[in-house]
C-alpha cells in the first residue's frame, strides 16, 4: 500500500482514513458569504462511490469476526457460502456488495421499489442478488419498513447463509465516522472547523461526526439537513421517517434544517456547472444547508459531507428539472422518454 503513488494490492487498501482522506474542496463562486469558508468533502471519491464505504467496511469486518462469513465454495464446490443480507436504498448495498465480492461472500440486498433503476443495476453489476419490496403498499405510520422486516426474516430463517449487519441499529456505523471521517476532517482543517453539515439517513454519519468533533471542540456546530415532507431524495430521511433508525440522537445535533426538497436537485446542478462538483441530490440539499448556515453565522469554516455524485440519479434529475431534457434530441424531434418522466 502506498498512498503517495496510489499503488494498492486490493481495493480494501483504498478505503479512507486519516492517512488517505477523501478530498476537501472549497466552494468559491457559489459561496454566498465571503467571511464564511465552505468546504465540500467529496465522498464519491471512495472506492465504491459514496460515503457508505466507511460504514460498509466496518460492518463487513464485524460480520467476519462475529458471524462467521464464509466464501462461496469454502467447504467444497456445493457450498454456497455465508454472506450478507441488508436492507439498503442502494449505496450501503453497493459498498457491501463490492467488498463482499472481493472476499467471495454472497450478498443479498433488500430494497424498496422506489430506489432508482440505476442503483438497482449497479447492485447487480457488483454481484448482489436483489429482493425488491413494494413499500408503498404499507401506509402504516410507526411500523418497521417492509424491506427491513424482509431482511430480518431472511437473516433469521437462513442464518446458515446470511448475516445481517443492520446499518440502522449497528453502532459500528457510528464508529466508522468517529474513527475515519471525523479524524480526517480534523486533520484536513488543522482543527479550525467550526461547523459540519450533513444529512439524516441511518444517522451514522451525523452521530459519529458529532461524537468525534465535539470531543475535540465542544463549540463545533453539528447541522443536519432534512428534506421537506413528501420528498423523493434517495437515501435521506426527514424527521418523521427517523423511527426506523436507533442511531439518531437529537442531543448530538445542534440544528435540523428542513429544506424544500426540490432544492436538492437545483443546487446540485449549480454545483456541477459552476464549481465542477458532480454532486448528487443529497449533496445538493446539504449545500443548501451550508448556504443557510454561512448566511446566518457570517464567519466560520464549514465542512459539508457530499455523500455521492450525480451519475446514479439522471432520471431523478430529469423528473425534477424537466428543462434538462430539452435539447437532447435533434430539432423537430421529441426527446427520448425516460422512465421517471412517465410517472
Amino acid at each position: 500500500m502506498n498512498h503517495q503513488t496510489r499503488v494498492y494490492d486490493d481495493i480494501f487498501e483504498m478505503l479512507p482514513d486519516e492517512d488517505n482522506p477523501t478530498p476537501l474542496v472549497r466552494i468559491n463562486r457559489l459561496n454566498p458569504e465571503p467571511g464564511f469558508t465552505l468546504y465540500a468533502k467529496l465522498e464519491w471519491m471512495n472506492p465504491f462511490g459514496s460515503v457508505k464505504d466507511r460504514a460498509a467496511s466496518y460492518l463487513l469486518r464485524q460480520m467476519e469476526e462475529e458471524k462467521g462469513l464464509r466464501p462461496e465454495g469454502a467447504n467444497g464446490p456445493d457450498d454456497p457460502g455465508k454472506g450478507i443480507v441488508e436492507p439498503t436504498s442502494g449505496n450501503t448495498g453497493l459498498s457491501l456488495a463490492g467488498l463482499a465480492g472481493v472476499r467471495g461472500y454472497p450478498m443479498k440486498a433488500v430494497l424498496p421499489n422506489k430506489v432508482p433503476l440505476e442503483k438497482k443495476l449497479m447492485l447487480r453489476l457488483a454481484g448482489s442478488e436483489l429482493e425488491v419490496v413494494n413499500d408503498d403498499l404499507c401506509p402504516s405510520p410507526g411500523m418497521g419498513e417492509g424491506s427491513i422486516n424482509l431482511a430480518r426474516t431472511i437473516a433469521r430463517a437462513q442464518s446458515d447463509r446470511y448475516a445481517m449487519p443492520h446499518q440502522y441499529e449497528n453502532e459500528n456505523n457510528v464508529r466508522a465516522h468517529m474513527e475515519t471521517t471525523g479524524p480526517e476532517i480534523w486533520k484536513q482543517t488543522a482543527g479550525e472547523i467550526t461547523h459540519v453539515i450533513t444529512s439524516l439517513g441511518t444517522c451514522g454519519t451525523v452521530s459519529g461526526l458529532s461524537k468525534f468533533l465535539k470531543a475535540k471542540n465542544p463549540d463545533i456546530r453539528v447541522i443536519a439537513v432534512a428534506p421537506s415532507e413528501g420528498h423523493d431524495v434517495p437515501g435521506l430521511r426527514n424527521k418523521s421517517q427517523l423511527a426506523v433508525t436507533t442511531l439518531y440522537d437529537e442531543s448530538l445535533i445542534d440544528d435540523v434544517l428542513e429544506i424544500d426538497y426540490e432544492l436538492a436537485y437545483t443546487r446540485a446542478a449549480e454545483l456541477f456547472s459552476r464549481e465542477g462538483l458532480r454532486a448528487g441530490p443529497s449533496a445538493g440539499l446539504i449545500f443548501e444547508g451550508g448556504r443557510i448556515v454561512a448566511q446566518r453565522d457570517k464567519t466560520g469554516l464549514g465542512v459539508m459531507i457530499f455523500c455521492d455524485d450525480a451519475f446514479k440519479y439522471a432520471k431523478s434529475f430529469a423528473k425534477h428539472m424537466p428543462e434538462l431534457v430539452e435539447g437532447t434530441a435533434p430539432q423537430n424531434q421529441q426527446p427520448e422518454p425516460i422512465g421517471a418522466l412517465k410517472e
Partner: peptide, 11 residues
Amino acid sequence: DVDTQQYGAGH
C-alpha cells in the same frame, strides 16, 4: 401479509 414476499423468506 400485506407484502406477500415475507412468507417465502421465512415463516
